[in-house]
Design a protein around this nucleic acid. Structure first.
Length: 219
DNA sequence: GCCCAGGTGGGTA
DNA sequence: TACCCACATGGG
């Protein structure tokens, strides 16, 4: 299975090349973007980040000093802005308390307690926590999102429906524990799913249209 | 006009 | 546990 996943990775990398995730200047910006993109297409989140950048609020202490209403106005293009303002304020306070403004502490802290505590921040669920840990802190945590499940389940590598944690553990157990690999593979799975999973007819032009044993996936 | 997007949390049965 | 639903903007 390990080899199969690595071959799948190679096929995607050959087709799409490096994806350059996550587009951010700092770990804090990754964390903010991870919240803003919840159930939201990236361009909306990017507009909200641009607003925060222009307002010089892309730093934990300066963001945490905003009122919910003022923060909400800046992030409105990302949608669900009342909820996200609340989440971002809680997350900024958490990161300040946890790192004292030094993001490198996220890279060194014991992983499981850190993940546990991130999940206790309101508005931070498993996908958001794992995006922050992988893309912001360079930790070996797989972001086992809906794209990951969609692509891998079509290749009968994982079940179509199932628990987030189970999918994450499966990937972490069946891949070398390399954050750079997790980073790139997750981004490539998103790329291939976006490019082909909704095309008509299904799978047209997809580099994975035939699975690695030469059989077409039953979709 | 409708569906969905780089989800989460709260509610109900 | 397994489904619903609200949240809210913007693009296809």
């Amino acid at each position: 299975m390990k080899r199969r996943l690595l071959r799948l990775y190679s096929a995607l990398h050959a087709r799409y090349g490096p994806q350059g995730w996550w587009p951010a200047r700092s770990a804090f910006e990754v964390a903010v973007g991870a919240v803003l993109t919840q159930h939201t297409a990236w361009p909306g989140a990017a507009r909200a980040i641009a607003n925060l950048h222009a307002a010089r609020r892309l730093e934990a202490r300066r963001l945490a000093a905003l009122s919910p209403a003022a923060l909400g106005r800046l992030i409105r293009p990302a949608g669900t802005w009342r909820l996200k303002a609340r989440s971002l304020l809680a997350l900024a306070r958490f990161l300040l308390e946890r790192t004292g403004g030094r993001p490198e502490r996220l890279r060194r802290a014991p992983l499981e307690p850190l993940r546990h505590d991130l999940l206790a921040v309101p508005g931070i669920g498993p996908e958001t926590a794992d995006a922050i840990l992988l893309y912001g802190a360079g930790r070996p945590v797989f972001v086992a999102d809906a794209y990951t499940r969609r692509v891998l389940s079509r290749h009968r590598i994982v079940p179509r429906h199932g628990d987030y944690e189970a999918l994450r553990r499966f990937l972490e157990e069946h891949l070398p524990g390399d954050p750079a690999l997790f980073n790139e593979l997750h981004a490539l799975l998103v790329a291939v799913a976006k490019a082909h999973c909704r095309s008509r007819p299904r799978c047209e032009g997809c580099p994975l249209a035939f699975d690695l044993r030469g059989r077409r996936p039953r979709v």
